[in-house]
Computed example of a mutant assay.
Amino acid sequence: MPDSATELQNRPEEAANIRLGRVSIPGLFRDLPEAVIVADEEREIVWANNAALAMFGYTIDQLIGQSTEILYPNKDAFQEAGTAHFNKTGSATDHNYEANYLRANGKVFLGETTGGPMRGANGEVLGYFGITRDISKTRAFEELLANLYRVSSDQSLDTAQKIDEILKMGCAHFQTDSALVSWVRGETYTVLYSHSEIAEIERGSVFKIADCCCARALETNGPVACNSSQDNACGPHPCYSLFVLETYIGVPLIVDGTLFGTVNFTSSETRAPFESSDLELIKMFAAWISQQLSIEKEINGLPDLS
């Protein structure tokens, strides 16, 4: 099967000759980074650019002739979009909007769309177009920042509760089921806080750093991630005593300018490879936890793990 992301590049003459009535779809749409889909009066797809094929996960042959209903998570969403934007009269005053869309693999994502009728010289509707940008990651990041701020500023929560909430958010984002905050002194790795959907590691549990995945993060002085135990970035870890570790992402934890320990998120299941943005994001999680620990140190001194 042809690669959907490059298929139109291999069929430029077809992509350039799609017409709705007397209107030809501009060839420049083909190389836009946003997904562009053109449909006829019946909202059946007649054209899509490379970005649309990559975004929705279809080949051009799988899209052409199909109702645009396949792009929506349910029939109600399809009909709502039609009522507001993709009909001859259109109830919407603004054709820039956000909506949930459905990929071929069944996953739903949030998109920002500019779309509406394509009209001929006499104003008649020849078909419809939609230009969509995937904003799911941007929106998820904005919501994450808002939640981190909400938790850190909640005066009803103590330090342990705040860190637990932060670890819980990290597990949700990184698709992991466990998280640890460690306190490192010399060659000793001590569990300070933990969150797990499987089995908590008791506060004060002590391990040798050499037996932990976090050793790599400390050696490199930066974030380390792997999505499978076959990855060289993964190695023996204390969590192996509780469940088989497959996924790991961790980073050194700096408090008041000094190395304090590590923050890591792990799972017994493999996941899709981490992205570079995830490596930046775990540093942000560590910074928020560092802030809480700095406040705790100022008030109560170093942790009492006895």
Results as ranks from 00 to 15, higher is better:
R185Y: 15
S136H: 11
G120S: 10
V108T: 14
R103M: 04
D134F: 02
E187D: 15
R103N: 01
L180F: 13
E165T: 09
Y101E: 07
T188N: 13
F129M: 11
A179E: 00
R133C: 06
T113P: 01
S156G: 13
N87Q: 10
G116R: 02
Y128M: 01
V206N: 12
Y149A: 14
T176K: 08
Y97K: 02
L102F: 10
I135C: 04
V184F: 05
C214E: 11
C214A: 06
L148W: 00
T176L: 05
G186K: 08
A121D: 14
W183Q: 04
V191L: 15
T159M: 09
R133T: 05
T138S: 12
A172P: 04
E187P: 02
A81K: 00
R103T: 04
A179T: 07
G123R: 09
G82M: 10
V108C: 08
L148V: 03
D164N: 14
E202F: 03
Y193M: 05
D94P: 01
F174Y: 02
M169K: 01
L144G: 05
H85W: 02
T132I: 07
V151G: 06
S156N: 14
E112D: 14
D164E: 13
G90I: 06
L180C: 03
Y189W: 15
I163R: 00
T93A: 11
D211L: 07
V125R: 01
A81V: 12
L126F: 13
C212E: 10
A81N: 10
C212N: 11
W183T: 04
L157K: 09
V206E: 11
L126C: 14
G90R: 06
R139I: 10
A179W: 03
K208F: 10
C171Y: 07
I163H: 02
A84E: 15
M169S: 10
V125N: 07
I166M: 00
E112L: 09
C213F: 06
S194N: 15
L145E: 10
R185Q: 15
A160T: 03
G170S: 01
E98I: 11
F207H: 06
L148Q: 01
G115T: 04
C212V: 04
T188F: 09
V184G: 00
G130H: 03
T83K: 15
D94F: 09
C214S: 14
N105K: 05
A215G: 10
I166K: 00
H173D: 05
E143V: 05
A199L: 02
G127H: 00
K168Q: 13
D177L: 08
I131W: 03
E112Y: 04
P117N: 05
L192N: 01
R216T: 14
V125W: 04
R203C: 05
A99L: 11
A81L: 04
N87F: 13
L126E: 08
S156P: 14
S152H: 02
T89W: 12
D94M: 09
R139G: 02
R150V: 04
K168T: 12
N96M: 09
A160G: 14
I131L: 12
V151F: 08
V191E: 11
T89Q: 12
Y97P: 03
Y101L: 08
S153R: 09
E200L: 12
E143F: 03
G120Q: 07
C212Q: 07
S136R: 00
E200I: 10
A160D: 14
M169T: 11
H195Y: 15
E202I: 08
Y128N: 05
Q161D: 06
A146N: 10
L157Q: 06
G116Q: 00
H95N: 13
E202S: 07
A179N: 04
